[in-house]
Simulated assay, not measured.
Amino acid sequence: MMQLPLAQARQLVIDVLTRFDVSTDHAGIVGDHLVDAAAAGHPFAGLPRVLALVEHLRQREPARPITIDRRSPNAAVIDGGGTNGYVTSLIGIDTAIDLARENGVGIVGINDTWFSGRLAYYVERAARAGMVAFHTANTMARVAPAGGVDRLFGTNPLAFAFPADPDPLVIDFGTGMTTWGDVLLREKLGQPLDSGVAVDADGQPTTDPSAALAGAFLPWGGHRGYGLSLVVQLLGVMCGSRIVVDEVSACGFFFLVLDPALLGPADAFKAQVTALAAQIEASRPAPGVERVRVPGRSSAAKRRAALAAGTIEVDDSIYAALVALRDGDTTAQLGHDA
């Protein structure tokens, strides 16, 4: 592993993506997201994602313009035009924030887009603007329903964020036992999966990343995770996705942003969220547990440390592959789509 300066990491993302006809502005948006993910302690959602982005860009037609159709004072639908979700989702959350500022509630759906990265990134942006946010994304079918072995759902993450001090309170989780990006990273690094997260193409349990990629992931939490995944799937359908997402850009992203002032003083609510988080952290841990944690606080602490150090950690082989792509080596090993 190597320590890569933040600005150098961002520029490497831009340099690679612009070689594949991504505009500098859009590449910068992706770079900001990936560097933040790595800084927040999510390496599989960081620079390795460029490899999958490039492979998919090679297979796609050039993106069309992104269009926003304002449906009501509170709602809009965004046609992504085949642009990657790192870009369209940033437009989506900012549109929802603007609608909520104007009318108290902002609802945005996005279709014809692909990949979106960490959902926490977008809802946290809304919470830093003083809003409450909920965001879901149904994705390429990788996950079997509880009791099944066929891929019908995506890893279908969902995220919530609430304003708080010193950082927003963010809850972000996928409804699959693992993520496509993590499995890809483990495959590249030659690392096995945890047991109980995937089956192979014949429906047999496997810890082999390659076999899992050919088979299916299992739903997190059994029937509970399956139920949440179904909710995310239907919200995506409402935004324009296919019932079963069998093509990576046929997914749907849903954003709901609320101004807490609709129901009471916003500053008082923020103070209450902050107080609840402090009370959780001060509560007694179970035997063998160091301390009770609040969701998202570990990522925020890791981000602060990375910003203070001015670097992120990047796997040597990932860095070498990205440099080769930047320098025009078309034989550089790439990841699969996600």
Rank of each mutant, 00 (worst) to 15 (best):
T175K: 13
G176W: 03
G176I: 00
G176V: 03
M177G: 05
T178C: 06
T179N: 08
T179W: 14
T179D: 05
T179K: 04
G181F: 06
G181T: 08
G181R: 10
G181I: 03
V183I: 15
L185P: 03
R186Q: 14
R186W: 12
E187C: 00
E187D: 14
K188V: 03
K188H: 14
K188E: 12
L189Y: 12
L189G: 08
L189A: 11
G190C: 02
Q191G: 02
P192S: 12
P192N: 12
L193C: 06
L193A: 02
S195W: 10
G196E: 11
G196C: 02
G196I: 02
A198I: 01
A198H: 12
A198R: 15
V199S: 10
V199D: 10
V199M: 10
V199G: 04
V199C: 14
D200F: 03
D200H: 05
A201P: 11
D202N: 15
Q204E: 14
Q204V: 01
P205E: 07
T207W: 12
D208P: 11
P209G: 11
S210C: 01
A211L: 12
A211T: 08
A214T: 10
A216H: 08
F217K: 08
F217M: 15
L218M: 11
P219D: 09
W220E: 03
W220F: 11
W220G: 04
G221D: 10
G222F: 01
G222Q: 05
Y226D: 09
Y226T: 00
G227E: 04
L228E: 05
S229V: 05
S229P: 08
L230F: 11
L230Y: 08
V231A: 13
V231G: 09
V232R: 09
V232E: 13
G236F: 04
M238T: 04
C239T: 06
G240S: 07
G240D: 12
G240R: 05
S241V: 00
R242I: 00
I243S: 06
I243V: 12
V244D: 06
V244P: 05
V245T: 14
V245Y: 02
V248S: 04
A250I: 00
A250E: 12
A250N: 13
A250F: 03
C251D: 14
G252Y: 13
F253T: 02
F254S: 03
F254M: 09
F255G: 01
F255N: 01
V257E: 14
V257Q: 13
V257F: 14
D259S: 13
P260Y: 10
L262R: 15
L262M: 14
L263M: 08
G264V: 09
G264C: 05
D267N: 13
A268W: 09
K270R: 15
K270D: 09
K270C: 08
A271Y: 00
A271W: 04
